[in-house]
Computed example of a mutant assay.
Amino acid sequence: MTTPTFRMATPADVARCYQIEISAYEGDEAATEAKIATRIAQYPQGFLTMELDGEVIGFINSGCAHDVVMSDEEFKELIGHDADAPNVLIMSVVIDPAHQGKGYASLMMRTFIERMKDMGKQTIHLMCKERHVDLYRRYGYQYVRPSASDHGGMAWHEMVMTL
């Protein structure tokens, strides 16, 4: 098996990341191509891509805030983002469906966590569906509460990791 490599996203990755996003997320849950482009342009340090044989097969993107409000829809466009803030908010964790089930998401999450530690961040926050709560607990996240967000018309759960 080829070992994946990791790097910050660049504007050239927008179309491929959008393709992965819409293939892996349901309906309105997926970010638009414009939101992905904004996230890459405004905070590439928080947009980690995973490549296999030169092709992006997954990514995690995020923003940073001083005050975390996970249900803030504007933040998904990085409104209120501050690269120097200590709290990381993950917006997408996604692997191309053709590469799921091979342990890549775990490797990507561990790499992302280490990079955020190296950047001096204090916490990582995310929202997930109920079926993923135990998965994120295994990475070291703690359950916070059901989220006020109904993003994509779905029920979400807020989780946090202290670095």
Rank of each mutant, 00 (worst) to 15 (best):
99 H>K: 11
89 L>H: 06
53 D>K: 14
144 V>E: 14
19 Q>R: 14
103 G>A: 02
13 D>Q: 04
11 P>I: 03
49 T>C: 15
102 K>L: 12
77 E>L: 00
29 E>S: 08
93 V>K: 09
68 V>A: 01
69 V>P: 00
151 H>V: 09
22 I>N: 02
71 S>E: 15
16 R>G: 02
70 M>Y: 01
90 I>G: 01
140 G>H: 10
133 V>P: 08
149 S>K: 09
13 D>W: 04
121 K>S: 02
124 I>N: 02
109 M>K: 08
65 A>P: 01
130 E>N: 12
79 I>L: 07
83 A>C: 07
44 P>W: 08
113 I>T: 07
32 T>H: 05
119 M>A: 15
132 H>V: 09
46 G>M: 05
118 D>S: 13
75 F>H: 06
12 A>V: 05
34 A>R: 13
21 E>T: 07
54 G>F: 11
139 Y>V: 04
159 M>L: 14
5 T>N: 10
54 G>H: 13
86 P>M: 10
60 I>D: 03
88 V>C: 04
162 T>I: 14
154 M>C: 10
5 T>P: 04
66 H>Q: 15
107 L>Y: 00
43 Y>E: 03
66 H>D: 15
54 G>K: 11
133 V>A: 07
49 T>K: 11
140 G>E: 09
114 E>M: 12
57 I>E: 03
114 E>H: 13
122 Q>P: 00
47 F>L: 03
63 G>T: 04
19 Q>K: 13
109 M>N: 03
26 E>D: 13
130 E>D: 15
27 G>C: 06
96 D>Y: 09
46 G>P: 04
15 A>I: 01
136 Y>D: 02
36 I>K: 00
43 Y>Q: 06
86 P>Q: 08
38 T>Y: 00
126 L>T: 05
11 P>F: 04
33 E>A: 12
117 K>S: 06
11 P>A: 03
112 F>W: 11
116 M>S: 06
128 C>Q: 11
152 G>L: 06
129 K>G: 14
99 H>L: 03
22 I>W: 05
44 P>A: 05
149 S>H: 11
7 R>D: 07
28 D>H: 13
85 A>E: 10
5 T>L: 10
110 R>K: 15
90 I>Q: 00
85 A>Q: 11
86 P>Y: 09
147 S>Q: 11
29 E>T: 12
94 V>M: 03
62 S>L: 02
46 G>D: 07
105 A>S: 15
135 L>D: 00
117 K>W: 09
122 Q>T: 13
148 A>I: 08
84 D>A: 15
15 A>H: 10
